[in-house]
Design a protein around this nucleic acid. Structure first.
Lengths: 167, 167
DNA sequence: CTTAATTTTCAAAAATTATTGAAAGTTTAG
DNA sequence: CTAAACTTTCAATAATTTTTGAAAATTAAG
């Protein structure tokens, strides 16, 4: 496989992977492009490479900046902005995990807590609802811990050793 | 909060959570409904409770069955099918993790492996692409292990030890 | 200040995804 | 077998999400 094909494949793979971490295709593709670029890119370059509009580029770059994944860089003597992404995959995973937790899991946990403290009218249906809500709440809390903490501790040798054991 | 409100909240929370585990809203809501129901439900009951069409119900129940999350039950002397879902949240998590790995992560890992074995033409751009692809591949493999193995082994002391360490 | 370069916004259009409902298909009872 | 009870299919429609592109806003240079 030659460079151009590999590059396209990388970008489109990452793009479809975007759904896994809950961001849209263009956003994921922009990030992918920056991730394998040897230097920061301008809006024009991103538009050209991905064949997307200016507005689309602007909005998605903005969101990536909001996520903390992309940063602006300025070159002396130039007006336009250059965009760069976090290149360390561990750090990237950490940011994504933290953001997903904050944006999606935390609100769910909050709602499940509200539900589990509902008025218990003594009916079987209510008992089941409370029971299942609490079970799910516990799972959500564990999942959240795994997501936000495990990713944070990649360099820990104990975690690594334990992971290798079960791999 | 009274039963009806709590139930609605549970179903809609789970419905929006559906995007996290990559299934559509109706599918997630049907599963949620079954999950808190004290007994298996028929197509009619699901349609009525969720206010969705027969076709929609049929298609999404089918998908849930394909995922291995919902099972058919037959009552003696009755023609219609009753649907039941896995009630154990741990088991549910296990099934979902396994399916997502199979459907989404495995194909990505395969593609990343293909890319990382691309022809190295010695350019800086190619070097960067290979380097980043390999880093991502390693992360994807670790994430997949955590997802499929750790979730599988809740009673496993290694997983428990890992969790306690970081919690 | 004025002007040109650049980015942002947002209504409209396009693309994608989900839902409906009626017809076709299947299954079981009699 | 036939008929009734039920489930599945799928083309049409609706809802949602994404993308566009041109106008407005912003920024910096002269």
């Amino acid at each position: 496989m030659e460079y151009q094909e590999a590059k396209q494949k990388f970008i489109s793979t990452w793009g479809s992977l975007g759904t896994i971490w809950g961001i849209n295709k263009a956003m994921a593709q922009i990030q992918a492009l920056l991730f394998i670029s040897t230097e920061p890119l301008t809006t024009e370059q991103i538009m050209e490479e991905l064949q997307i509009s200016r507005g689309n580029t602007s909005m998605n770059v903005r969101q990536l900046i909001d996520w903390g994944i992309v940063t602006k860089e300025l070159k002396v003597g130039e007006r336009k902005e250059y965009y760069n992404t976090e290149k360390d995959v561990q750090e990237l995973a950490r940011i994504i995990a933290k953001e997903r937790s904050r944006r999606e899991i935390q609100p769910v946990i909050k709602t499940l807590q509200d539900i589990s403290s509902m008025n218990n009218d003594g009916s079987a249906a209510t008992a089941e609802l409370i029971k299942q809500t609490q079970a799910l709440l516990e799972l959500a809390e564990t999942a959240d811990t795994v997501l936000t903490k495990v990713v944070n501790h990649k360099q820990n040798w104990v975690s690594n050793a334990l992971l290798k054991m079960i791999k």
